[in-house]
């Protein structure tokens, strides 16, 4: 399972929870990354509605940048076709399912939303089946 206690995972997770709590407590908004991205890109919004979403995404990139460099080895030579299929599936799925790991998994479960609990259980099981099939029957 893991060699040492995964303190980085726990610290990172707590930071993500604090981020979501901050956005909800002060702005009344759900820190759901897929929804923030799609609403910014595809929906006609007032400048205030665009502004906070853009600020969040700029912050997301900036925070990621500040926490670099990563300690892991970068994946190389992974199938671009798989990445395209994956990107389309993540995009379509998170739009019609109204959320991803952040919106459903972190925020929705925190709010005890039944929809988010079902969504999270579904994408976890679906992800596990996918990796199991990919690694044992395809890759």
């Amino acid at each position: 399972m893991f060699e040492t206690f995964p303190s980085q995972a726990l610290i990172g997770g707590i930071l993500i929870g604090i981020s979501a709590a901050l956005l909800l407590a002060f702005n009344g908004r759900i820190a759901g990354i897929s929804g923030i991205l799609y609403n910014l890109l595809f929906n006609p919004l007032s400048s205030a509605e665009r502004g906070w979403r853009a600020a969040f995404l700029i912050g997301l990139m900036g925070g990621g940048y500040l926490a670099l460099p990563v300690e892991f080895e970068l994946r190389q030579g992974y199938s671009p076709i798989l990445l395209v299929i994956a990107g389309l599936a993540v995009g379509i799925g998170t739009r019609i399912g109204n959320g991803c790991t952040s919106g459903h998994g972190v925020c929705g479960i925190g709010l005890m939303a039944g929809r988010s609990m079902i969504a999270t259980a579904t994408f976890m099981v679906s992800g596990i089946i996918t990796v199991t099939v990919l690694r044992n029957f395809i890759g």
């Binding site: 980085q8 995972a9 726990l10 610290i11 990172g12 997770g13 707590i14 930071l15 993500i16 604090i18 981020s19 979501a20 901050l22 956005l23 002060f26 702005n27 908004r29 820190a31 990354i33 205030a48 502004g51 906070w52 979403r53 600020a55 969040f56 995404l57 700029i58 912050g59 997301l60 990139m61 900036g62 925070g63 990621g64 940048y65 500040l66 926490a67 670099l68 990563v70 300690e71 892991f72 952040s102």
Partner: peptide, 22 residues
């Protein structure tokens, strides 16, 4: 609200990198 959104994004992004979700 913009400052809060920016801060929230910053903390979220750092959390994703620190946790190795990336």
């Amino acid at each position: 609200r913009l400052i809060i959104a920016l801060m929230s994004g910053l903390i979220f992004g750092a959390g994703l990198v620190i946790s190795e979700m990336v």
